[in-house]
Structures are given as structure tokens and as C-alpha cells.
Amino acid sequence: MTEPRNPGMSSVPQSNPSHTESSSQAVEMDPVEYTLRKRLPRKLPKRRNDVYVNMKTDFRAQLARCQKLLDGGGHREICVHGLGLAINRAINIALQLQASSQGALQLAANTSTVELIDDLEPEDPDEAGEPMTRTRNNSAIHIKVFYPDPQ
């Protein structure tokens, strides 16, 4: 949760053997020899009305960008995507948009699972450590924010 979503910057804890022993996933590897690199999530389908929310950009800037797409961009609907920790922010943006439209906007949320890949690279190339990859899942949300068609 506190881990920064930043590929290549985080590493396996090295000075905490008790921690790595207790977690079953880390049993077979030596924590000293590997660096954990998180790859970026794969595939980013990007239409003009897709907005990918992250935790680095200022919240208001991301909200303003969505608002602009709906107001000035001429889009009847936009798609707000959030992965992991950014799910909360994506929901917040969607709800804020809806609230400021005085009920004109509707939300349709879908959830999905995204497979993420971590690379485990040996710290010391001379050692016999094999590079490894590990896949894990993370949850994602896709919120369609749209003006309902008059019927």
C-alpha cells in the first residue's frame, strides 16, 4: 500500500530476513541477490475520451481534464480508468463530475483484473542467480461517465 508505484525504483527488503521468511512467496529466493522491478501495466487502449488516473498527478488537474473533455471537448461520454490504489481517485473524480453536473451525468462502472508482471533481477551478475518473473493480479475500475440519451 505504501509502496510507490514506480517501476525500477523499489527493491526487495534486504535487511529483514524474518519478514521474507514468513511470506511464502519469497521463500525460494535469496533476498540479497534480487532487485524487484515492477513493469508497467501492459496495454493501454487510448481513445480521445479515455482518462487514466494515477496517483502522481494533482487530483484537481485530473478532475479539470475530465471536466474539460466533457464541456469543451464535445464528448458525450468519457472513460475514467483506475488501477490499484488509483481506483479510489478514479471513483472520486467520477462522483465529483456527476455532482457538479447537477445530475445530468450518469455513471456506469465496470471492474476487471489486470495481470501485472514483476521482474526479479540478480543484483550481482557473477552469481548464479537466474532472472525470474512473477505475475500477480491487481484490481481495476473503468467508469463510463456519460450524458444519457434523451428517450
Binding site: L107, A108, N110, T111, S112, H142, K144
Partner: peptide, 17 residues
């Protein structure tokens, strides 16, 4: 209903993909 997701699909939003 908005927010509906049929079984076994990624999501209705990604139908074309």
C-alpha cells in the same frame, strides 16, 4: 441498467477489443 457487466467478459467498455 448502467453498471451492468455480463459474465466472462472483460467489460462492456472493451467490447470492441
Amino acid at each position: 441498467e448502467p453498471g451492468y457487466q455480463p459474465p466472462e467478459t472483460l467489460s462492456a467498455l472493451w467490447e470492441d477489443r
